[in-house]
Design a protein around this nucleic acid. Structure first.
Lengths: 236, 236
DNA sequence: TCCTCACATTGGTTGGTACCTATACGGGCC
DNA sequence: GGCCCGTATAGGTACCAACCAATGTGAGGA
């Protein structure tokens, strides 16, 4: 390891230095950080850019860079269910419901950018947090990208399995969030009353070349789950 | 105008040049763009950084920069209801339900970072898209930041009013999204069947100094509204 | 024919420098 | 005492230059 770029190391260092301080505390000036850490101001700015994008600091021209107030929600990042639950201090677990190879069909084919006749591997799991149901997860992969997946241990993190076994890394994902009325089987599996509402998240995960790798539909219990994120004003 | 920074102008220029081309078409190399537009490579990279963050292009080291596939969802940005609806090609409108000054109370005080006894202005509106109800919106401002707001015309864009009348600009916002069962009055106002589910978005808007400016709770119809966004893998 | 490896090319990182613009603070004027 | 404005200082923009690291290709060997 230790292959990290300087601006990345600096980012971590600054994050560590900041960790104890109160919100709105000013950081040293860019020029001072530059001098103290023995890097160029360019590198400092790169690190600060990342911290700003993550919502850890805010900058005011002419005034300085300041520690952002502790936010409920970190900026929106792509996380696996396991990571998501651990961030909420819940213990993630899984119950495999189905793992099979089927035809893609029209809708999935479109989301994954493959032919409707192509085969996909479907993994259906009930995800638990601290032992009780949190969501129903339906993941689809193009079959030719994950040969032998149905024989693997699907109880843990799929992301880890994908990365280690198939060298597939999901770098970005598009998500569509909707509120839905749960069906009876869904409500039963999730252990909520019939007629409850739920949060449906449809996701298409892409590798660093923007090729679709995964299409997932997840149904969350409305009473235990929310989505938190920070948005910023952008230019047109 | 024309006060735009070079990297910003370049970004727009590149976006325009790209607009016709097919996905995965490579852009000119950074060095070539630099030469052709008469700017430094640093500036080119700044422009490309923005385009990449917006999801318009993706970059592969050693290979090039490519036009990203047309995505359903642009990267997540902060938009007003009016902008949001226009992006969906719907005509936004408003019906004012209430505009009053009240005590903040515990919960609002916490969200806005003010004292519970402090006064807040509450603006409650039914938002319409193409003439039919889309959501119920409840906006709260610290009263001392928007004197005389209740006397203004509250039928249009609050963001515009805030910017022009009070010089308040919302630069970032934290949002919490949940699925909820609508209450009877809410369902009636939104014109959906009793017992329908809805999407509740709680937002705290902040100015560029990260000071809370507004706290909004919005209740969307589940059948007409979804939230779309792109997430990226981030470092720890 | 197929595989391998060196190399040219592309984006990624880092350094350095200069100048612009917004901000805050303090001294001086009213 | 309070307002105004100059000035020091902060971040923002832009340029140049050099080198690193991943990629892909084509020449050459098995």
């Amino acid at each position: 390891m230790a292959r990290a770029a300087k601006h990345e190391e600096l980012r971590r260092a600054l994050l560590a230095e900041m960790s104890g301080s109160a919100p709105h505390t000013p950081l040293p000036t860019e020029r001072e950080i530059s001098a103290r850490h023995g890097v160029s101001r360019n590198t400092v700015r790169q690190a600060l850019d990342a911290l700003e994008a993550a919502g850890s600091v805010y900058r005011v021209q002419g005034a300085g860079t300041f520690i952002a107030p502790a936010v409920v929600s970190k900026s929106l990042t792509l996380t696996s269910f396991s990571e998501d639950m651990r961030a909420r201090e819940l213990e993630p677990a899984s119950r495999l419901l189905a793992a099979e190879t089927v035809r893609a069909g029209q809708q999935l084919a479109e989301r994954l950018g493959i032919a409707p006749e192509a085969e996909v591997v479907r993994v259906s799991r009930l995800r638990l947090a601290d032992g009780s149901p949190m969501c129903l997860e339906n993941v689809h992969f193009p079959a030719d990208r994950v040969p032998g997946l149905t024989e693997e241990d699907l109880g843990g993190s799929l992301y880890t399995l994908l990365a280690e076994r198939y060298r597939l890394e999901i770098r970005s994902a598009e998500q569509i969030v909707r509120a839905v009325d749960l069906g009876d089987t869904e409500a039963a599996l999730l252990g909520v009353p019939l007629g409850s509402s739920g949060l449906r998240v449809e996701r298409v995960g892409r590798d660093r070349r923007d090729a679709p790798v995964e299409a997932t539909t997840t149904l969350y219990r409305a009473d235990r789950y929310d989505i938190r994120f920070t948005v910023r004003r952008a230019q047109s």
